[in-house]
Design a protein around this nucleic acid. Sequence first.
DNA 1: AGGCCAGGCTTACGGCGTAAACACCCCAAT
DNA 2: ATTGGGGTGTTTACGCCGTAAGCCTGGCCT
Lengths: 234, 234
Amino acid sequence: MSKETAGSSSPRLSRDLIVKSALEMIDRSGAQGLSMRALGQQLNVEAMSLYRYVHGREDLLEGVVALLMSDLTAALQKEKGEHWQAFLQLVAHEVRRIASEHPLAFPLVATRHPAAPWLRPPLRSIEVVNTFLSALIEEGFTDAQAVGAYRSFSSFLLGQLLLESSVRGAQTAPVEEPLDEGDASIPHRDGNLSLDEAPEVKRLRSLLSEDRSEEEFEVSLEVLLDRLDRELSQ
Amino acid sequence: MSKETAGSSSPRLSRDLIVKSALEMIDRSGAQGLSMRALGQQLNVEAMSLYRYVHGREDLLEGVVALLMSDLTAALQKEKGEHWQAFLQLVAHEVRRIASEHPLAFPLVATRHPAAPWLRPPLRSIEVVNTFLSALIEEGFTDAQAVGAYRSFSSFLLGQLLLESSVRGAQTAPVEEPLDEGDASIPHRDGNLSLDEAPEVKRLRSLLSEDRSEEEFEVSLEVLLDRLDRELSQ
DNA sequence: AGGCCAGGCTTACGGCGTAAACACCCCAAT
DNA sequence: ATTGGGGTGTTTACGCCGTAAGCCTGGCCT
């Protein structure tokens, strides 16, 4: 007799189950919407029971990030011998897939402090970075070029995918009303200024609203790869 | 007779004072470290008093973001007639300055949901976007090119500056101990894997730790501007 | 049979955001 | 001078949160 939305009959607690359940909850309502108590309820368990398997909320979030990135780790191991451009394409698309499938969770991957200061989101595990660097170096990159590529790549992925996640996440996310303060004469307070005083924005609004993210991603990725290619053969 | 670290004699409350004080607090201890009660204490006032001027914590953070970006708005108004490359350079460096001066606050600018879905961080006010678009269009960009440039630029700034802020912020920020769980045989748990099993990372650690952010930023900016230039004249 | 202990529960504490009612004080109109 | 009213800050209270500490119990090993 099941009582909540969880499994049929309390399939036993484990760190893995907890982390997966936390990811589901984040996918549904964002990282802010995750509380130990709510997570416990989803698992038919008291909040304090979770502490046997996670050291606290921070550790739990760390686990969620690690879970998200475990797919990437696995995928990279298999395709290590590719040409570097194919390899980088794989990394890029794999991370993009993760971001697309978990738009509310990806900001965690992007903004949580990495374990070491020289680890940069979203490629933030030593294992992945090691694979990344050795793949490039095997293909003829110098040490400095490989490290430079790691940085450019991180920055590219972070910017592009965080923006995509933000857009996709907003579609699912709740709508926040900032509460009117009584003034009725002042036009719509869209942060600062009404659309009427921003003619170009008003005119281009439909163009601004178009979703070109897929195409933008591919083009920017090509540009980055070309740049690396030029660096390499120069 | 002053009692706290605030001003000499309670210089009166106002939204502006509150928002500025909040920014100081965030600069010191991050957005997580900002609480209404602590902010009230810093202003020699009860937490609830703030609610006369701010609609709540969310609104307060919105105000902090707006304050951070107000410098940019002002700077852009003055240099609107420049060549587009100079204009974009100005925007880029101005935003970078803001990010550098407030590494713990910049993530707010980068990750808070914008007022409209087509407003992309970190250029997230209608006023700034309007200036941005009209400046480019006056210089011969088509509508689509201008919007494309806005997107590329946003993505570039977001990725680059969020990484920089993260690094700078970590230097100031507190150190988190994830708590050992008793196992003594397993090597250092740097997220997933020890350094000993990641030879390339170990070998390149000093290279990875070097701070090349200034130079990277300039180079990537140049690349982006070149790409836009090519698009423009094609 | 006895006891141990992993796994989950109960209770409790301090902090958080904030709704609602209240107290004060300054100033304008009488 | 009186009064009353509105803006400013306070008090109190509620329901959430993370989590420390101790408890209970059922199943396994000896």
